[in-house]
Write a protein that binds this DNA or RNA. Structure first.
Length: 692
DNA sequence: TGGCCTCGAGTTCA
DNA sequence: CTCGAGGCCA
């Protein structure tokens, strides 16, 4: 039965729309239509194809949903073998590599194409006259497994090439991977449904491709980046690798946006460091970067050694995941009483740093990981540097381990531990009765952003509290040199240590003199610092500043009731309650009176209820290292000009000041098209506006 | 009521 | 830096 022309036309139109949507989403990274609309179009096309058999075709977007399960994978011989790359872990190896290229090509400063090395699964895709006909895993390099049906389900892989002049034969090599966000989402769903989550994105990608049932693969969020070629027939290759990548993009393949060019060993190393610095901000896992000689004629001149090209190098990052064992699980008590479990680990080197502790965050996290003392665990340095336990290696769990339970009473003071309805954290209810909370409150009080008492670190504070020399923050101002010297002696006796300070009595008192002087200096402070230092719950630097400005002086703030506090910007019922509650407490009023009595003072003035200055109404975010000023100082100066200095970038941000090695905040600013200043511009602006 | 947008709190190691 | 939760706006 012939297909009516109008129906054929509609089907062709739908296919084009769906292909374009895929292309924009995966290749141009610029989604054009919402998912729901995509699904609607896809369903319409399916209906048409079901009704008119003659419309069906192998390269239709409807053919991605997953064919029948296979019995086993066929074997595919690669027309050109899939090579592996030489590895480098050190700077010297990279320099040697460049030196070999310079010697081999006679080019004193050859250009390299550089790209991130994705942590996924290498595959080869074969296109004949523009149609995707077969895809295979790398296997041993000479032949791999035929995973065509699974690859068809990956929307980032074109089923037919774009463009007018299509090569008779084209083999594209690249990496199938699972984007991190998709991995997280997939696992969250899996857990909800009580299914086994994937261990990591790499295993997720590899496991998904090796499913015999493509319908399972179709449900996995896989993506693809192209990075090279195999056999080619009927395409005139451009002279450079980078141009070839651009050509692949024209054909409809996604190429890693971080790909670029560099020259000289220093250029390569700079790229390595730049990508390394952004590693955790990238949407996918990478395990290094790849350098390839850009000119194909130079590649040919370099040739191969055994199975690896001499014109390319994989520069790997140091392993960032390691396994170690859990020696103990302790709990820490924070300033607000928050009880945080911490895993004490057998020391292990992760990405160049010896890790011995890793936070387990809270009861939920422990529950999810089920970490137990004696377990072997995989540790990773997440985010920037902070180690975290990724998972437990189940096979290595020793016999007779017990599930960790949050303590019912505070390990320091014995008070009840409570977890409030809907909250994630458990807290010690002891308040300032708890020595741990008292010590933390004092450490916070003395910290740089609060009263800035130099030299009064956590060790000293803990000793002061332990030995009962200090109960409230006001007590700090009553200490003299003799007190500190005595404290040090008693602490040493208690610990059985006899440090050098005792041998040289003079040194000991010098240390104490410095401390007393630092405490004395802190008497001269600002209302803003004092409010922050008091440690009222939910009052951080930002709220303290708002309150100080809004009230101008302490007494009106202390006297303010909840309804007056609600008038303050960014203060809602909860925070208003916390503030009023704090100042209602007689103990807190006494401490404030005592602070004043010992000479703690700050300038007071009239209430300032609207910002002024050249930057009034502007919101500024600082990121990266500012060499001239430092972040804090720059922030203070900007604030003095009326700007609001915020911690994270959003569309309300007026501009971002980016210093050296700026990270995700800079990326986000670029994404949102927010104005970006470098340090020079900031300094220039501050100078011309005469910041005080 | 829901969905941002912030801020606050906690955390590691050299 | 990241997560959780408070505040604010639609």
């Amino acid at each position: 039965m012939a297909v009516p022309a109008a129906v054929a036309k509609r089907a062709a139109g739908l296919r084009r729309k769906l292909e374009d949507a895929n292309h924009r989403y995966y290749v141009l990274d610029d989604p054009a239509i919402p998912d729901a609309e995509y699904d609607a179009l896809l369903r319409e096309l399916e209906a048409l194809e079901a009704e008119h058999q003659a419309l069906a075709s192998a390269d239709s977007p409807t053919q991605r949903v997953g064919a029948r399960p296979l019995q086993e994978f066929g074997e595919v011989r690669h027309a050109l073998p899939m090579l592996s790359l030489g590895n480098a872990f050190s700077e010297q190896e990279v320099r040697d590599f460049v030196a070999r290229i310079v010697a081999g090509t006679g080019d004193g400063d050859p250009v390299f194409s550089v790209e991130p090395k994705l942590d996924g699964l290498a595959i080869s895709l074969r296109y004949e006259r523009g149609q995707f006909v077969r895809g295979a895993t790398r296997g041993d390099g000479a032949s791999g497994e035929d995973v065509t049906a699974n690859l068809r389900t990956i929307k980032a892989i074109p089923l037919r090439l774009r463009g007018e002049q299509l090569p008779a034969e084209l083999e594209v090599r690249g990496e199938v991977y699972m984007p991190r966000a998709a991995f997280e989402k997939f696992n969250a769903r899996a857990r909800e449904h009580g299914e086994k989550p994937l261990a990591n994105p790499r295993n997720g990608a590899a496991g998904s491709l090796r499913q015999l049932d493509p319908r399972i693969t179709a449900k996995r969020p896989l993506a693809f980046f192209a990075y090279g070629l195999g056999a080619v027939e009927g395409w005139k290759l451009p002279p450079r690798h980078s141009q070839m990548l651009a050509g692949l993009r024209e054909f409809g393949f996604p190429v890693a946006p971080e790909a670029g060019a560099a020259n000289g060993a220093d250029g390569l190393l700079e790229y390595y460091r730049a990508i390394g610095g952004r590693r955790d901000a990238l949407p996918y896992d990478i395990d290094g970067v790849v350098y390839k000689l850009d000119r194909f004629d130079q590649q040919n001149a370099m040739g191969f050694v055994s199975r690896a090209p001499r014109w390319a190098l994989a520069h790997k990052f140091p392993a960032q995941e390691q396994s170690t064992t859990v020696e103990a699980i302790d709990v820490q008590v924070g300033r607000t009483g928050a009880i945080t479990p911490v895993a004490r680990l057998a020391p292990v080197n992760v990405a160049g740093v010896v890790v011995t502790n890793a936070t387990l965050h809270n009861a939920d996290q422990i529950e999810r990981l089920d970490v137990r003392v004696g377990d072997t665990v995989i540790v990773r340095r997440a985010g920037d540097v902070i180690p975290e336990v990724v998972r437990v290696v189940d096979d290595k769990r020793p016999a007779r381990t017990v599930r960790f339970a949050m303590p019912a009473t505070c390990p320091i003071c014995g008070s009840r531990v409570a977890r409030e309805e809907g909250e994630v954290v458990s807290r010690c209810t002891g308040g300032l009765f708890c020595p741990a909370q008292r010590a933390q409150a004092l450490i916070h009080f003395a910290s740089r952003r609060a009263m800035d008492i130099e030299g009064l670190g956590d060790r000293i504070v803990e000793d002061l509290v332990d030995l009962g020399l200090v109960r409230t923050v006001a007590d700090l101002y009553r200490l003299d040199v003799a007190d500190f010297v005595a404290m040090r002696r008693r602490a040493d006796e208690r610990d059985g240590t006899v440090p050098e300070t005792v041998k040289a009595g003079k040194v000991a008192s010098k240390w104490a003199e410095n401390l007393v002087a630092a405490i004395d200096r802190s008497r001269n402070t600002t209302l803003e610092r004092l409010l922050f230092a008091l440690g009222i719950r939910d009052i951080g630097e930002s709220s303290a500043k708002t309150l100080a400005k809004y009230f101008g002086a302490l007494d009106p703030l202390v006297a303010a009731d909840e309804s007056a506090l609600l008038e303050v910007p960014d203060v809602g019922p909860i925070v208003a309650g916390r503030i009023a509650g704090f100042f209602r407490e007689p103990h807190n009023r006494e401490v404030i009176a005592a602070l004043r009595a010992t000479g703690v003072h700050w300038p007071e003035g009239p209430p300032q209820r609207s910002a002024e200055g050249p930057l009034a109404g502007k919101t500024v975010v600082l990121t990266g290292a500012l060499s001239e000023l430092g972040r804090d100082e720059a922030g203070a100066q900007l604030a003095a000009l009326g700007a609001k200095v915020a911690g994270s970038v959003s569309k309300k941000t007026s501009f971002v000041v980016a210093g050296e090695a700026a990270g995700s905040k800079l990326d986000k600013a670029r994404q949102l098209g927010i104005e970006i200043w470098d340090e020079a511009r900031l300094l220039e602006f501050l100078r011309s506006n005469l910041a005080p």
